[in-house]
């Protein structure tokens, strides 16, 4: 199953290397990783999507938490959260197909960010499903290039992500 993990890290050189090294060493599977500055100076926020079962995801979180530069970490999969991903798609668009493509783009609220002779670049934002389905819809027109940011996520409501609680599953007695 997909697990969405939000990680706040100190903004030091080499942090990404440590995270990547840990995933490699323990053979965890990253589906996507997005990183950028957070609202706090000196802290970057990563959203990591991993394919893992419950126990494996718990290990991913605990092992990441051991990295000194990881300030906080939360598996938000089970929490109410919004997640978004952006894609840029360069689509072959000869004049006769252009209107048709633009109509489809409109359905997905995709923005046209570049128009050139024979091609256009569309920008689309949404959850993973929406982007997947958008890509499939425009594929027949000829996708010349596609780039996706990977998912970023945020927990709904005023609450910050609930920090990871180190309690094991299973009855105590």
């Amino acid at each position: 199953m997909r697990h969405v993990i939000i990680v706040d890290v100190e903004d030091h050189p080499g942090v990404l290397n440590r995270i990547a090294s840990l995933f490699r060493k323990r053979a965890y599977n990253i589906e996507s990783l997005a990183v950028g500055h957070s609202h706090r100076p000196g802290i970057s926020r990563m959203t990591i999507v991993v394919a893992a079962d419950h126990n494996e995801a718990l290990q991913v979180v605990k092992q990441l938490d051991k990295l000194i530069e990881v300030v906080s970490i939360t598996d938000v999969t089970e929490q109410r959260h919004v997640s978004r991903e952006m894609a840029l798609a360069k689509v072959a668009a000869p004049e006769m197909k252009r209107t048709e493509i633009l109509q489809l783009a409109n359905v997905y609220r995709a923005q046209v960010v570049d128009v050139s002779p024979g091609s256009i670049i569309l920008e689309v934002t949404g959850d993973e499903d929406k982007i997947d389905s958008f890509v499939e819809i425009i594929r027949p027109y000829g996708i010349l290039e596609l780039t996706r940011t990977g998912e970023v996520a945020m927990v709904r409501g005023r609450a910050m992500p609930t920090p990871h609680v180190l309690v094991e599953e299973g009855p105590a007695a």
Partner: peptide
């Protein structure tokens, strides 16, 4: 904490 439950399930 990462050792708890890593190799064997813990009660």
């Amino acid at each position: 904490p990462a050792e708890i439950g890593k190799n064997v399930a813990t009660d």
